[in-house]
Amino acid sequence: MKKLIVILFSLLPALAMAAGPSVPLDAANNDLSDKASLQRGAQIFMNYCFACHATQYQRYGRVAEDLGIPDDLMKEYLIFDPNAKIGDLMVNAIPADYAAASFGAPAPDLTMVARVRGSDWLYTYLRSFYADPTRPFGVNNIVFPSVGMPHVLEELQGVPSKVYETRLVDGVEIEEYVGIRSDGTGELNDEEYDEAVRDLVNFLEYSAEPMKLERQRLGYWVMGFIVVFFVLTLLLKKEYWRDVH
């Protein structure tokens, strides 16, 4: 009985993850074949995310090659460590203990985050920050309540706030949450910010599986080979069994 209880408790985190988020997610609609989007996403990531979050299973050179970025431009605009080489892993300089002291936990590596969380979750999360003076960094998040991360893209979006609308329910006025709205102080308008977040998530999805498009392309060839092999096998079987019948 004790073993059964232990097993059930060990499955609770997995069951919670399987249940999915309680907030409806917006579709990211990524396109991994859009090199321009991936390049913009890499630029946003390196300028706003890389100070805390590494992608330590990626190499600068591999990213430059896959995204069509010349090595000299990669070094000039996307590699900020003067000691880093084009073939190095993309590891940032923030110590794990310092990050833990500053944010409550070490900043997670983002190489595989799109595969763990999902692109739609990331896209919705990055567009769901709102001003909350009670939090250490002055912001909270609809998708990830009590998040320990500051809104690093606030420069682009502006100061976001929760928006409510009043509606009547059985003759009683209630405040209903309808979304997030920026105060307009950011560098981008709402549509431009959504597109910038989509570019960033597109890059993170690429980082999670750089070979995804190649794997899918090879998959079509493999399926075609299996179909041809099946036809040849069927014809060979008929040839062998012709004398038996």
Rank of each mutant, 00 (worst) to 15 (best):
I69Q: 03
V152G: 02
I69R: 00
L126P: 01
V152L: 07
P160K: 00
F230M: 11
P106H: 08
G224S: 06
L218K: 13
Y123D: 04
L4G: 09
T55F: 03
K238M: 01
A99E: 13
L110D: 08
P108Y: 03
V178E: 09
G138C: 01
P150D: 04
D132S: 12
V116D: 04
L200N: 08
K85I: 06
M74A: 13
A114C: 09
V231H: 11
M223K: 12
S207A: 11
E176Y: 13
Y240M: 12
V139F: 10
N141Y: 03
L8I: 15
A196W: 06
R59W: 10
A36G: 02
A18T: 03
D66G: 01
S33I: 04
A54D: 14
N140R: 02
C49E: 12
S161C: 01
R181C: 02
V143D: 01
G104E: 08
D66H: 03
G20R: 04
S10M: 10
L156N: 02
W121M: 07
L153V: 02
L126W: 09
Y98T: 13
V139D: 00
V244A: 07
L25V: 13
R115A: 11
P145S: 07
S128L: 01
E155C: 01
Y177T: 08
A16Y: 11
P106Y: 11
P70R: 13
L153C: 00
C52R: 02
T134P: 05
A196T: 06
G68Y: 08
N83M: 14
P82K: 05
A28N: 08
V113R: 09
Q157V: 00
E154K: 06
M112V: 04
E176H: 14
R198C: 04
P136E: 13
L126R: 07
S22Y: 08
K2L: 07
F230L: 10
K238N: 03
K75N: 12
L110C: 10
P82C: 10
G20N: 02
N83C: 07
G138Y: 06
K3C: 00
R59L: 12
V63S: 00
P13I: 02
I86F: 10
W221S: 04
F129C: 02
P210S: 05
E155Y: 09
F229Y: 09
A42T: 11
G68A: 07
P106E: 13
E76A: 15
H53T: 09
V147M: 05
F230C: 12
S146Y: 07
A19N: 02
W121T: 08
A14Q: 01
R40C: 08
D88R: 11
L67C: 04
G87M: 09
G20C: 06
Y177Q: 13
M17R: 06
Q56E: 14
M90V: 15
E192G: 09
D71Y: 15
A100G: 03
N202H: 00
Q39N: 14
P136F: 11
I7E: 08
Y77G: 00
Q56I: 09
V143G: 03
N141D: 07
V163T: 13
F129Q: 00
A96L: 08
L204T: 07
V227A: 15
S161G: 02
